[in-house]
Simulated assay, not measured.
Amino acid sequence: MEIVAFGVQADERPLLESAFAGHHQVRSLDVLLNRDTAPIARGYEIVSTNVDADLSADVLQTLAAGGTKMVAQRSTGFNNVDLEAAADLGMSIGRVSHYSPYAVAEFAWALALAVDRRIVRAAGRTRNFDFRLDGLMGRDLHGRTAGVLGTGRIGEAFTRIAHGFGMNLLGWDIAENPRCIELGMRYVAQERLFAEADLITLHVPLVAGTRHLVDAAALAAMKDDAILINSSRGGLIDTAALVDTLKSGRLTGVGLDVYEEEAGLFHVDRSLDVVDDDTLARLMTFGNVLVTSHQAYFTEDAVGQIIDATVANVEDYLTGRINENMLVTRGQLPVAAR
């Protein structure tokens, strides 16, 4: 069987095609799946997509009309998928429930250290042989407080690194992680975490209850010199409110690997285009803000695990097996999702 895969990055392609070798052929495309590109999938029973895919009802209808019965998403998040529509169309939708938590946790720390120690600014200067230290002063993180919102696999990995730095640990989640408690984490209300943490990092999924978790009120509660890191989902932060906060001179640094309107922007080259997103354009003007293109997961280890899980999802679909990654199985939603 030939599978068409959308949104395949150049570094990802050999791993993807090698994993399916001997089982199925893969047609790897660098274009993203959306309303315009969905007709490309006509005739393919199985389509694989990345996190940037538009799997809204009309796109799913186009896929189904073209013969697609299974979508294997190469990502954990599925807020881009209309599951009800997929069920109505009798489709199967798979995802990757988990992969290396260290990839994202370590990248979140890379962002935190980069903005704290002004590394991007320093690197730009030294490349031009400007070796001044003006404006490059950072702070020790040892002895300061890390606030971790979401203490699952990734949040726990971040917490372990924070513990290694000798930081005080505050956490918030719907369920406490005993391994984080063993490291000295104290679970507190969101309001207290926002008010007391010097470094705040987000590791919760994007669902209705977490959209704009960091809103104007949360930002107002933070310390003026706090550092804010988001390597989870862009919609967790009210970006317009964040811009207003930065315009007022507050927050030492912000590291963002995600952006709430990133669809159609991230993972493609827009350097020759006029980007009409005024909010993102303004955000990028702040010297204490570092934006990367949703790459926290992008390590050989994590991508390899994502691809292996995708192969397993395809094989399970073809043999009629159901695994933990299936969000919709031949038109049936899991009981918890109904």
Rank of each mutant, 00 (worst) to 15 (best):
I322T: 14
F165M: 12
A157M: 08
V258F: 05
Q295K: 07
A72N: 11
A53Y: 11
A162W: 05
E45A: 14
R153E: 07
K223D: 07
D52E: 13
D116Q: 14
M222K: 11
I40L: 15
L55M: 12
G234E: 04
V243F: 04
H142L: 00
G209T: 14
I322D: 06
L251G: 07
Q295E: 12
D130S: 12
F266I: 08
G171N: 09
V120C: 05
A21P: 01
I229L: 11
M137S: 09
G124W: 02
A217L: 00
F20N: 04
L213K: 04
A87H: 03
M137P: 00
A114W: 03
G255W: 09
D54C: 05
I161C: 01
N177P: 10
S56T: 12
L83H: 10
Q73D: 05
T201Q: 04
N80T: 09
A240L: 08
Q190H: 13
A197H: 11
V104H: 04
G249S: 07
M70S: 10
A197S: 15
G66V: 09
R117N: 13
G66D: 12
A336Y: 12
G264Y: 13
G138I: 11
K69P: 00
A53Q: 10
V188I: 10
D269V: 12
A85V: 01
A108W: 05
R144V: 02
T252V: 00
D198G: 11
A122F: 06
G143L: 09
E300G: 05
A123V: 14
L333K: 09
V104D: 02
Q190T: 09
S75T: 13
T151M: 13
S28Y: 03
E315D: 14
L256A: 02
T37C: 10
N313P: 06
G155Q: 01
I154V: 15
G171A: 13
N288A: 06
N34W: 00
I227G: 08
Y102T: 14
A221N: 12
N325V: 07
V328S: 04
D215F: 10
I229A: 04
V31Q: 14
E262P: 07
T68M: 00
